[in-house]
Computed example of a mutant assay.
Amino acid sequence: MNLIIRLLLNAIAVFALANILNGVTVDGYTTAVIVAIVLSILNLIVKPILVILTLPITIITLGLFMFVINACIILLADKFIDGFAVSSFWTAMLFSVLLCVLQSLLHSFLKADKKSSN
């Protein structure tokens, strides 16, 4: 149940950011849910491989290269999903940073709600 709530919160974040940012388009709510699922799968499978392959440059840049990896994951999701489009690499990087911040806020509300119900 918690996984479904997290995916729905991620889909809400994707849909909200697509309406705010000019270079990102999402066709509808179902596409936003699909984007959330695909991003979760890519973060689970592809991201660890990219992190290991780019470990030296990530260490040299003190972890800032992770922004580039996150933007690449967003662009990869763009290639897989028809109703989701990102116009450029820099837009993907901005989308990635804002998505991370928005997801953190939404998930913190979920944790605060769980603590108050106990």
Rank of each mutant, 00 (worst) to 15 (best):
M1C: 14
M1K: 03
M1Y: 13
N2Y: 12
L3Y: 02
L3F: 14
L3N: 14
I5L: 11
I5Y: 07
L8F: 02
L8G: 04
L9V: 02
A13T: 07
F15D: 00
L17I: 10
L17G: 02
L17E: 05
A18R: 04
N19E: 09
N19H: 12
L21V: 05
N22T: 06
G23F: 00
V24P: 08
V24W: 01
T25G: 00
T25C: 08
T25K: 09
V26W: 06
D27V: 09
D27A: 03
D27P: 04
G28N: 15
Y29I: 12
T30G: 01
T31P: 07
A32K: 01
V33P: 05
V33D: 00
I34S: 09
V35W: 03
A36F: 04
A36S: 12
A36Q: 07
V38W: 05
L39I: 01
L39A: 08
S40Y: 02
I41R: 12
I41H: 02
L42S: 07
I45D: 01
V46Y: 04
V46H: 05
V46L: 03
K47E: 02
K47N: 08
K47I: 02
P48L: 08
P48K: 10
P48A: 03
L50S: 01
L50H: 05
L50G: 01
V51R: 02
V51D: 12
I52L: 15
I52Q: 12
I52C: 11
I52Y: 10
L53R: 05
L53D: 10
L53Y: 03
T54H: 04
L55C: 00
P56V: 09
P56Q: 10
I57T: 05
T58K: 00
T58A: 10
I59F: 11
I59C: 15
T61I: 01
L62G: 10
L62E: 04
G63N: 11
F65V: 14
M66Y: 15
M66W: 09
F67V: 11
F67W: 04
I69C: 08
N70I: 01
A71K: 09
A71M: 06
C72T: 02
C72I: 09
C72F: 15
I73N: 11
I73Q: 05
L75M: 11
L75R: 08
L75F: 03
L75W: 03
L76H: 09
A77H: 10
D78T: 06
K79E: 13
I81A: 06
D82T: 08
D82W: 12
F84T: 06
F84E: 00
A85Y: 12
A85N: 14
V86C: 00
V86G: 04
S88E: 05
F89W: 02
F89I: 07
W90K: 12
T91R: 05
M93I: 09
L94Q: 02
L94K: 03
V97F: 08
L98W: 02
L98G: 10
L99M: 01
L99P: 04
V101P: 06
L102Y: 06
L102A: 06
Q103P: 00
Q103I: 10
S104L: 05
L105M: 04
H107C: 00
H107F: 13
S108A: 12
S108M: 03
F109D: 09
F109V: 06
L110W: 06
L110R: 13
A112C: 07
D113Q: 15
K114S: 13
K115G: 14
K115Q: 14
S116A: 13
S116L: 11
N118R: 13
